[in-house]
Design a protein around this nucleic acid. Structure first.
Length: 886
RNA sequence: GGCUGCGUAGUUCAGCUGGUAGAACGUUCGAUUCACAUUCGAAAGGUCACAGGUUCGAGUCCUGUCGCAGCCACCA
């Protein structure tokens, strides 16, 4: 019996779950009457399929009110299509959540056992984390059930389930064979706290005040070298155009040609005019001789001017060096050679750059200007002397440089700034002869490293920034405060460093084309339609996808090495990889040399597996076919019909599913993408933990019931648009539930023992009402099919309350009562009795129709009432398997 | 800077392919021992941001302006 008085969803709802969860009823792919189908039978069932893969929530924490909103939309579609008689599957799953998951469980372990992952070791940590996730999962699943999501929980899968792992790794191996995978040194976002690389999306930006430092880089006109020999070796100095000085032995011919009868202790001076090739000119101190190509420029050099006087001995050379201004000369002692490198700078001629990261100047490899900038265009190709390290670097050009910002000239640090990295690549592609390189000077601890002066080694970047700034002295001529947005790890909140590192990449060229076409051709439709542009914009600008993450929690990359794989910064600042001590260029090189192999299992005893795991999106992107395959339902349900998720992961997740789905299965994994907006806090603010305005679903469900919450998500809302939680609305929806309850109670009260199988002659008034209801069914059906769930819910709300209750029920009251207010018998004539019978039968019919129409939206109350309704033959025990009215 | 969305009643928002404005909540007035006071009836309240244009007709299409939000890139 339906209880007297008001409907209490909080009391009633938990009991209703048993109709769907107990026994075999909650198997969406078959009707209750037909019993549990085996996988084989599912395949033989030829009904049209309808499948929604539920976006797997993070398995480590319970969802908030916004996280579960999607289930309401998914469930409306699942229940609607189930009622249409389709073979329906809602496929639930739980996500291991990559970095987030690892950080969260480690924290729990540290709290509980005082042991972090390093103390546990990889295997123990993984095992414990796995158990932990498996244990929490039922709790998360209960939240899904509590909101009424009618998915097939017996087929719930965890992302790290071995059945899924095989598929994910298999895809990587296939891609490797298809030459779509490579491992290469590239700039990455490095989180020094979490010790992992981060995809752009795993980072966020915060704004902070920062100091823009203007630095003068001296332009180089000529470079003068002073050399001295003081032993029997005859040496020469050769200047590399972009790197540092190197010495080498001269061959006899050169020796004779350039040096003749030079004796140890003689002083030589060499001049090289920068940017115009190498011209060697030598002088012998005291007795000047010119051996080759006397340059006009050289002639003009007055040695007394350069040195202040003539030099006659090594000691004098040293004395001169001591007296020179720092930054203008360098003393070089190498292989028995002593030399002063003198830089003949253009007097007071500088190119100025502005930077917020002064310390990275130690790794600069060029200065970049806009080719259309008249201030600098004449300087392109010239060299500047990088202060402190005294390394000559070229001035190059790029249209990416903003003429307006700073000085219009940019210091190029390709190893530590993404944009600089891009500029380097573009420049090198267009100017292979004048290619510039990168110099990595920050290590994975965010400390200074590599080929930089000793005093900076090991300093934290921020600390080093101050030291460098001080050391630059008056080369820093201006500083200004600016608002700068810096990248931090989304989870760790640590400042992200961009560094060069070796990473696994997916070449997306082959992946993206068909995924773009699928959407352009409408094979995959995105709702709301305008989001299609977002998708295409993203896809068209897609770059190769770094898929490795330095974590333990996830799918370990199925690549094996013969020995330890190491990554070091060499003396030139280059990242060098070696396996078992042997240098390798890339993965193909390593495989060819027999030092690495790709496969699920180790090729040989003692080989070491790659330490990294895959980016979670690499696995999430395979979720549709991986889950179905794990359940043996791939053939029966792939491709699915609808993907319903939040609009903010359209690019991250949906695009990957389309790409990988087409790659792996030849077809996009779904036909329609329905994107819902984000639920906001009551004040219209975005819900976030930091604002402390997060609402738990329980807090709402325990007061208003899950059905009310579903209506909040549904009524009057449209795809893609966010909306605030409104307690007034929730209150209103609870009243609506009460209205359904009381109307049903009233109907059951007046019809009494009516046998709904006995259909009486119907009064035209009732027929009219029945037709109206049928018309409504069609309308609602169309709206749901067109993803206008909000309109459908709103219309139902209106029609049920104001048409059915306020008008029709009031209308039949005088026809169905047997006594008037004074207690006198009424409605006793034949005609009146006929009208009464018609009204009673019709009102039951119409109420049932409404319950069915309402069921996808408010499943709990409609199921509860359905259980009490007098059934006719062929009607299902639970309303969820009833036929959609038509 | 690029892209996108939004700007409609006091509030939160609907309004699909263009046809003289809708819901919920709130407000005001009235009803009521009836399935439901978690009710019913009625009313007030909007030149649909602004300015142009297309059209017989525009909240709906186009152009521009202003304001708000989001996303992407950048911030060297």
């Amino acid at each position: 019996m339906l209880t007297k008085g008001a409907y209490d969803p909080v009391q009633e709802e938990p009991g209703i779950l048993k109709y769907w969860l107990d026994g075999k009823l909650f198997k969406p792919e078959y009707h209750a009457q037909r019993g549990l189908l085996s996988e084989e039978e599912v395949k033989q069932d030829e009904r049209e399929t309808f499948c929604i893969i539920n976006p797997p929530p993070n398995a480590y924490m319970r969802p908030h009110i916004g996280n579960v909103s999607g289930y309401a939309y998914q469930d409306v579609m699942l229940r609607f299509n189930r009622m249409l008689g389709k073979k329906v599957l809602g496929q639930p799953g739980k996500d291991h959540a990559g970095i987030q998951g690892e950080v969260v469980v480690e924290k729990i372990f540290i709290e509980k056992e005082g042991k972090g992952k390093l103390e546990m070791g990889r295997d123990e940590f993984y095992k414990k984390a796995y158990d932990h996730f498996i244990n929490i999962m039922p709790r998360i699943m209960a939240d899904e059930q509590r909101i009424g999501l009618s998915s097939d929980y017996d087929r719930n899968v965890f992302t790290l389930d071995p059945r899924i792992v095989d598929t994910i790794l298999g895809t990587f191996i296939k891609m490797f064979q298809d030459k779509m995978v490579y491992k290469g040194v590239r700039i990455v976002n490095w989180d020094p706290k979490a010790k992992t690389t981060l995809a752009d999306i795993d980072t966020e930006r915060i704004s902070r005040e920062s100091e823009l430092v203007y630095i003068k880089y001296p332009l180089i006109k000529n470079m003068v070298w002073a050399l001295s020999f003081y032993d029997q070796q005859v040496l020469s100095m050769v200047r590399d155009s972009t790197k540092s000085i190197e010495t080498r032995a001269l061959n006899p011919e050169e020796k004779d040609r350039f040096f003749g009868n030079i004796k140890t202790g003689d002083l030589l001076i060499a001049v090289e005019k920068s940017g115009e090739g190498v011209h060697h000119v030598y002088k012998k101190a005291g007795n000047i001789e010119i051996y080759k190509n006397l340059e006009e420029a050289f002639i003009k050099v007055e040695w007394t001017k350069v040195f202040g006087r003539n030099l006659n001995s090594v000691q004098e050379l040293r004395d001169v060096y001591e007296s020179l201004k720092p930054g203008y000369a360098d003393l070089i002692e190498k292989n028995g050679l002593i030399a002063i490198e003198l830089l003949d700078l253009l007097e007071d001629d500088y190119i100025s750059v502005a930077t917020t990261r002064a310390e990275t100047m130690l790794g600069d490899t060029a200065v970049t200007v806009n080719p259309a900038d008249p201030r600098y265009s004449g300087l392109i190709g010239k060299q500047v002397l990088l202060p402190i390290v005294n390394r000559p670097i070229p001035i190059i050009s790029s249209v990416r440089v903003d003429k307006e910002f700073g000085t219009g000239a940019v210091k190029l640090t390709p190893a530590h700034a993404y944009d600089d990295y891009v500029i380097m690549n573009e420049w090198n592609a267009q100017n292979p002869a004048k290619a510039v390189g990168y110099i990595n000077i920050i290590d994975k601890e965010a400390k200074m490293a590599g080929p930089i002066p000793q005093k900076y080694l090991g300093l934290a970047t921020e600390q080093c920034r101050q030291v460098v700034k001080a050391d630059l002295g008056n080369l820093v001529y201006k500083t200004e405060k600016i608002e700068q947005s810096i990248m931090i790890g989304e989870r760790s909140k640590a400042v992200v460093e961009q560094i060069m590192s070796s990473q696994w990449f997916l070449d997306v060229e082959k992946l993206k084309e068909p995924a773009i076409k699928a959407v352009e051709k409408g094979e995959v439709k995105i709702h709301p339609g305008y989001m299609t542009k977002k998708y295409l914009n993203w896809m068209n600008n897609l770059r190769d996808w770094p898929v490795s993450r330095s974590l333990w929690w996830g799918y370990r990359i199925p690549v094996w090495y013969k020995g330890e794989i190491t990554e070091t910064i060499d003396e030139n600042g280059q990242i060098v990889q070696s396996i078992a001590g042997e240098k390798v260029v890339d993965i193909n090189d390593a495989v060819n040399k027999g030092l690495a192999a790709v496969g699920i299992t180790s090729p040989q005893e003692g080989w070491i597996q790659d330490n990294d795991v895959f980016d979670t999106w690499f696995s999430s992107g395979q979720w549709p076919y991986a889950t179905l395959k794990a359940n043996g339902l791939l053939e029966a349900f792939y491709p699915t019909q609808v993907m319903e998720t939040a609009y903010d992961i359209l690019e991250l997740w949906v695009s990957r599913m389309i790409m990988l789905g087409i790659y792996h299965e030849g077809k996009a994994p779904f036909k329609d993408v329905y994107l819902h907006g984000l639920v906001k806090a009551p004040d219209g603010q975005k819900m976030s933990k930091s604002k402390n305005n997060v609402i738990e679903p329980d807090s709402v469900i325990e007061k208003y019931g899950a059905d009310s919450l579903r209506l909040l998500y549904l009524v009057g809302n449209k795809a893609g648009a966010g909306y605030p939680v409104s307690y007034e609305k929730l209150e209103g929806y609870k009243r609506f539930l009460n209205k359904i309850w009381n109307a049903s109670k009233f109907v059951m009260g007046i019809v009494g023992e009516l046998d709904p199988n006995q259909k009486p002659d119907l009064n035209p008034l009732d027929i009219q009402q029945i037709n109206k209801t049928i018309e409504l069914s069609k309308k609602i059906g169309v709206q749901i099919s067109k993803f206008r769930l909000g309109l459908a819910a709103e219309e139902l709300y209106q029609m049920f309350w104001h048409e059915f209750c306020d008008l029709y029920l009031e209308q039949i009251k005088p026809r169905v009562y047997t006594r008037d207010r004074e207690g006198n018998p009424i409605n006793t004539s034949q005609d009146e009795l006929k009208s009464m019978a018609s009204a009673k039968w019709s009102v039951v019919y119409i109420l049932k129709t409404y319950l069915k129409l309402l069921h996808p939206f408010v499943p709990f109350i409609t199921e509860r009432i359905w259980q009490e309704m007098p059934k006719i033959q062929g009607e299902s025990a639970t309303i969820m398997y009833e036929k959609w009215p038509e």
